[in-house]
Nucleic acid binder design. Structure first.
Lengths: 146, 146
DNA sequence: CCAGTTGGTAAAGGCTGTTTACTTATCGCG
DNA sequence: CGCGATAAGTAAACAGCCTTTACCAACTGG
């Protein structure tokens, strides 16, 4: 009815398919437990380790939510928690070797998808979407902060 | 770490903010029960009524999920179910007057946001995003069907 | 030193969806 | 016509991911 919020729909749906495709590729590499939500988490890790509170901020969820996700990934062997030498309360979340392999598989799958899309849709389209989407996002975020 | 699937991130996040903004505006108009997920449902209604199975297909969820959402919207008075005269098993889902008002409020809010974004980011950007995203989506969907 | 802040965990529950398992009505066809 | 296959819908359980509320333990600044 009454042509609708198509922009939101298009964005939501293509993002979902994009992620689903990457995850499927990672599954095919043998990491069958990986789920969509992990991508968001792994994006924010680094080699030195990150506190889960920082992850929570970056993901914009509560620290409990971040902690739950980290615990699950830890159980599955993709992450590990080590004590933070500079603060007795804190722990640093680090990616394991297995986690790194899965991440690399996903990265590779994304690159491949990217090249394929570029060749089919034109090399400029993905760049345009990324940059345009970035600009849109930036403005929407300033709106959020009143 | 290792620059990541930023495209997926940008798309997901801007879509979320976009919808959140529309929903907030609808709340401000007095329809405080409206939630994000309703937008997806309302987009697929028409005046004659639609079967919930059809809604499920369009939303790409199970018929149970569609049925649950319809039931909730029915309880809140935004939708109604009437028997389908052409099939004794089926019911037609129709929007009520109240539902229509809420929808129009959302539509208006979206139009306003659109004009604002156009004036800030340039009139071409939203069009580019919608069209480019549409092209991307179309291709991703052909990939899904092997 | 101690009041306040910060890092983190625990438990319960909300929201949106899925899976599994039906019931009932319609349709195609021998 | 009758009957098996299919389609519309409901019901119940539970998964995934997040939140709120409530804590504890360690750090920090005055």
């Amino acid at each position: 009815m009454l042509e609708p919020n198509t922009l939101g729909h298009v964005l939501t749906r293509s993002a979902r398919l994009l992620n689903a495709r990457v995850v499927a590729a990672v599954h095919a590499e043998g990491f069958t437990e990986v789920r969509d939500s992990w991508l968001g988490m792994l994006r924010h890790l680094d080699a030195e380790g990150v506190r889960s509170t920082v992850l929570a901020e970056r993901l914009e969820v509560t620290k409990q939510a971040a902690g739950q996700l980290v615990s699950e990934l830890e159980r599955k062997g993709y992450l590990e928690r080590i004590p933070d030498p500079t603060d007795g309360r804190a722990k640093l979340v680090r990616i394991t070797e297995r986690g790194l392999q899965a991440w690399l598989a996903g990265l590779q799958a994304f690159r491949a998808l990217e090249t394929e899309l570029d060749s089919v849709l034109g090399a400029h389209l993905l760049t345009t979407l990324r940059d345009g989407g970035g600009a849109l996002l930036a403005h929407l975020e300033t709106l959020e902060n009143h």
